[in-house]
Simulated scan of single mutants.
Amino acid sequence: MKQIIAAALLGLGMAGAAQAADPAVGTWQRQVDDGAYAHVKMAPCGGAVCGTITRTFNNSGEYKSPNIGKTLVIDMKPEGGGKYAGKVWRPSNGKIYIGKMEVSGNSLKLSGCVAGGLICSKQTWARIN
């Protein structure tokens, strides 16, 4: 019985380590969009990665946006090689777009597209931690 419990705990620990090793996990600073930017915490959500707004800034400095705590990056599933596919929410217009994301070191490229990917808006984010 002790071996079964030990094996189960080891399996859980390894699964947690695998999720923590995901290159997208961490806090990222969004590029300025419509005069403001945010810090977004990327974390595992099921078999994907989701990003939640944790802090917001404008020309005057940090402010308490009503968007704090909202999910900006939605169900980005890894496709290998630092690439992901899912959805992205744009706070300035409240719309959800088809999303693509690529992580390379401390840089994250995010795009939101409409019309089957024909019209896209792109941003490059910087890792904070």
Results as ranks from 00 to 15, higher is better:
7 A>W: 09
51 G>Y: 00
63 Y>A: 08
86 G>C: 04
105 G>P: 01
36 A>H: 15
76 M>C: 02
13 G>Y: 08
90 R>I: 09
89 W>N: 10
41 K>V: 07
11 G>T: 10
61 G>N: 11
84 Y>M: 01
17 A>H: 13
94 G>I: 04
11 G>E: 04
120 C>N: 05
66 P>N: 10
16 G>S: 13
57 F>M: 09
60 S>M: 14
12 L>I: 10
117 G>C: 02
88 V>M: 03
116 G>M: 06
3 Q>N: 11
51 G>C: 00
30 R>L: 15
44 P>A: 14
68 I>L: 12
59 N>Y: 14
22 D>I: 01
90 R>D: 13
34 D>S: 15
16 G>V: 13
20 A>M: 13
30 R>Y: 05
38 A>P: 04
16 G>L: 15
99 G>D: 00
88 V>P: 02
92 S>M: 06
124 T>V: 14
14 M>R: 11
88 V>G: 04
56 T>Q: 15
6 A>R: 10
73 V>L: 12
108 L>Q: 04
14 M>V: 14
70 K>D: 07
2 K>D: 12
53 I>D: 01
81 G>Y: 06
54 T>D: 04
56 T>M: 15
12 L>R: 03
77 K>P: 04
87 K>N: 11
86 G>S: 07
49 V>D: 00
114 V>W: 03
28 W>T: 01
77 K>W: 05
3 Q>C: 10
113 C>Q: 06
85 A>S: 14
122 K>D: 11
128 I>S: 03
118 L>K: 12
